[in-house]
């Protein structure tokens, strides 16, 4: 495999990359300020932390709507349909094969940006954790105006737990970006849009210009 040619394909569109970095910025800010509100440490001061948290939280809710719109109008939502096909081989790769220099069992392509493990993880996060975090956050924010829907203690506990799960995700996610061809190739991919893959299929001439680079 080592002699296989590495090529670049254009995987992430401009909006997608923009959204990825904006959302990551917002979520990191929310985790940092949220944990201060939680009482884990002192950084900005409680009041400032609350103001930043509420402001970014509400912005995120609004911007997320645009993302959902994009997801459905472009059909990109299909990228998140879970599959068990090859799931096991991906798990096997990360727990064993990677140490032996084996190639990744899945090659990214325009039609399948995420491997089966990623699909599952991202679906869980985008369809479960994030919406629940948004709803609990919003109810937390509007608590005084809708007393009694859910007691604050329950809202806060769910909100805190998911915040820590997202921090967990962030750790793993950041680490996984280093598992590309070089340590930074995945990150570079999300910045420029061009992701490195092994050349697998023959590409027609007309196709190379727009989507692949040698």
């Amino acid at each position: 495999m080592k002699d296989k040619k590495i090529i670049k394909i254009y995987l992430y569109t401009r909006y997608e990359r923009f959204w990825h970095w904006l959302q990551s910025f917002m979520i990191i800010c929310l985790i940092v300020t949220g944990l201060e509100i939680h009482g884990t440490y002192k950084l900005f001061g409680f009041q400032t932390a609350v103001n930043i948290h509420n402001f970014i939280g509400l912005s995120w809710l609004i911007l997320f709507a645009f993302f959902v719109f994009w997801l459905f109008t472009t059909g990109e939502w299909k990228q998140y349909i879970p599959t068990t096909k090859k799931l096991f081989s991906v798990i096997l790769y990360y727990s064993w094969g990677i140490f032996q220099g084996k190639p990744h069992p899945i090659q990214k392509s325009k039609g399948a940006k995420h491997n089966p493990l990623q699909r599952l993880a991202y679906l869980g996060i985008s369809a479960m954790l994030l919406p629940v975090q948004m709803v609990t956050g919003l109810l937390y924010y509007l608590y005084n105006d809708m007393l009694g829907i859910l007691p604050l203690s329950i809202l806060a506990v769910i909100h805190t737990l998911i915040a820590l799960f997202l921090l967990n995700f962030l750790v793993v996610h950041l680490y996984m970006t280093t598992t590309g061809h070089s340590l930074f190739s995945h990150i570079t991919g999300m910045i420029t849009g061009w992701e490195e893959i092994y050349e697998t299929t023959e590409i027609a001439d007309w196709e190379t210009q727009a989507t692949r680079k040698n």
Binding site: I37, H38, L152, A156, L164, N168
Partner: peptide, 22 residues
Amino acid sequence: YLPGRDKSNLIDIIGWLSVFGA
């Protein structure tokens, strides 16, 4: 529940275990 003063110890332990485990 007073934010910043109160927390659920159980939830905090589960959450932080997951973070440090990761």
